[in-house]
C-alpha cells in the first residue's frame, strides 16, 4: 500500500492505496466524487476525463499512486459560489446532453482545452471533441455549446 496526497478541486486528500488502484476508482470510491464516470476502462470513451495539473487526461489510464502531489480537477469543481461554469450553462442552453453520462468527461475535456486555447479554430475543436464518445446527442449540440462557451470564456 502507498500513502499519497493530492488536491481534488482544491481540497487536499490523503489516501492509502494499492498500486493497482486506478485514479478514477480512487476519485470515485475513495474521495466519493462520483461525477467522473467510467465508460470503458481502456482509454477510448473519455467519460473519465479529468484535469491533471490543468491537462485533460483519462483517469482510467493512470494509477492513483501516480497522482501523488498533483492537482486534480473534476466536474464537481466547475461550479463556483453557486454559479455554473459557462460550459455547464452552455450545455444546458444548447441541449448538449441527454442521458448525461458522458457529460462530465466532455466538460472537463473542453475546460482543459479552452483554458489554454480560448480562440481554438473550428478544425482543432472538432479534433479535440472527437476524443470522447457520446451515444445520445450526435455531438452537434456539444459543438454548439462549447463554441458558445468559448466565446464567453475568451478574454
Amino acid at each position: 500500500m502507498h500513502d499519497i496526497a493530492f488536491t481534488l478541486n482544491g481540497r487536499p486528500w490523503s489516501l492509502r492505496v494499492e498500486p493497482r488502484r486506478t485514479l478514477v476508482d480512487a476519485i470515485r470510491d475513495d474521495c466519493g466524487a462520483t461525477g467522473t464516470h467510467i465508460g470503458c476502462e481502456h482509454g477510448v470513451c473519455g467519460a473519465c476525463t479529468i484535469l491533471l495539473d490543468g491537462e485533460p487526461v483519462r483517469s482510467c489510464l493512470m494509477f492513483a499512486v501516480q497522482a501523488d502531489g498533483r492537482a486534480l480537477r473534476t466536474v464537481e469543481g466547475l461550479e463556483k459560489d453557486g454559479a455554473l461554469h459557462p460550459l455547464q450553462r452552455a450545455f444546458i442552453d444548447h441541449h448538449a446532453l441527454q442521458c448525461g453520462f458522458c457529460t462530465p468527461g466532455f466538460l472537463m475535456l473542453a475546460v482543459g482545452v479552452l483554458e489554454r486555447t480560448p480562440n481554438i479554430s473550428d478544425e482543432a475543436l472538432t479534433d479535440v471533441l472527437s476524443s470522447n464518445l457520446c451515444r445520445c446527442t450526435g455531438y452537434q449540440n456539444i459543438v454548439r455549446a462549447v463554441r458558445a462557451a468559448a466565446e464567453e470564456m475568451a478574454p
Binding site: P56, V57, R58, L61, L109, V128, S131
Partner: peptide, 12 residues
C-alpha cells in the same frame, strides 16, 4: 502528431 489517438492521450 495530430494523427496519434486523441488529445487526452497525447497529453500523457
Amino acid at each position: 502528431q495530430p494523427h496519434i489517438a486523441h488529445h487526452p492521450i497525447r497529453t500523457r
